[in-house]
Simulated scan of single mutants.
Amino acid sequence: MQSIQISESERDAFYKVLHNRRDVRREFKPDPIPQDVLMRVLEAAHHAPSVGFMQPWDFILVEDLAVREKIKVGFEVAHAEAAQMFDAERRETYRGLKLEGILESPLGICITCDRQRTGPTVIGRTANPEMDLYSAVCAVQNLWLAARAENLGVGWVSIIHHDTVRQALGIPDEIMPIAYLCIGYVSDFHEKPELEKAGWLPRADLQSLIHHDQW
């Protein structure tokens, strides 16, 4: 069995990518993503861990402007709904935030989960049936980190209803949309996450989140 060791420089490069990953909204450039770069990013997503090795993900590449406009309309509907859930002060702050780059980015990628891909019984999903959904989210994270390593920005459009995404992209009812991602080259990356920078919430102290043996 071959043992692949990670060098210190490789380790440091990984942590640099990890700590400089950002949710990008307004900095997208229109430049197309070269096919070889895009395939490396998708290959990284495809190598995410998956329960029972079921690999439940599919990737819908969305370039057509008319399709992206449907996604944008769906975002605006959900965005308006969300604004009403905050108190008056927070509502105004929320409305002033840029929370998507659907039309600004040159490409959208929808990652889905086929919950029946390898049949009804899956190793590792017997006690916790939602594990396949978590696997698909791992593919999102892999894609995001790989994109950052390629100096591509990614933004997750989470403020949208799943049925809107299904209808816009022709996704069958039995397939679960997991993430609609905006991806592309950017003018710059923020030093800190935008919500942290805007004072929406601070980064939690790691020590306060660590428990030993019991909660």
Rank of each mutant, 00 (worst) to 15 (best):
F14S: 05
K16E: 15
K16H: 15
M39Y: 02
V41S: 06
V41T: 10
L42N: 04
L42T: 03
E43I: 00
A44L: 08
A45Y: 05
H47Q: 14
P49E: 12
Q55Y: 04
F59R: 05
I60S: 03
L61S: 10
V67N: 02
E69Y: 00
E69A: 13
I71L: 15
I71V: 15
V73S: 14
V73L: 12
V77D: 14
V77H: 11
A78W: 03
H79S: 12
R91S: 12
E92I: 11
L97D: 05
E100Y: 00
L103I: 10
P106V: 06
G108L: 05
I109C: 06
I109Q: 01
I109Y: 02
C110T: 12
T112D: 11
T112G: 11
R115T: 14
Q116M: 14
G119E: 08
T121E: 15
V122P: 09
T126R: 12
N128A: 12
M131Y: 06
V137F: 13
A139Y: 01
W144R: 11
W144C: 15
G153H: 06
G153N: 09
G155D: 08
I160G: 11
D163N: 15
D163I: 01
R166M: 06
P172S: 13
I175W: 03
I175Y: 08
V186L: 07
E194C: 06
K197A: 15
A198H: 09
G199Y: 01
P202M: 03
P202K: 05
A204L: 13
L209Y: 01
I210P: 03
H211L: 10
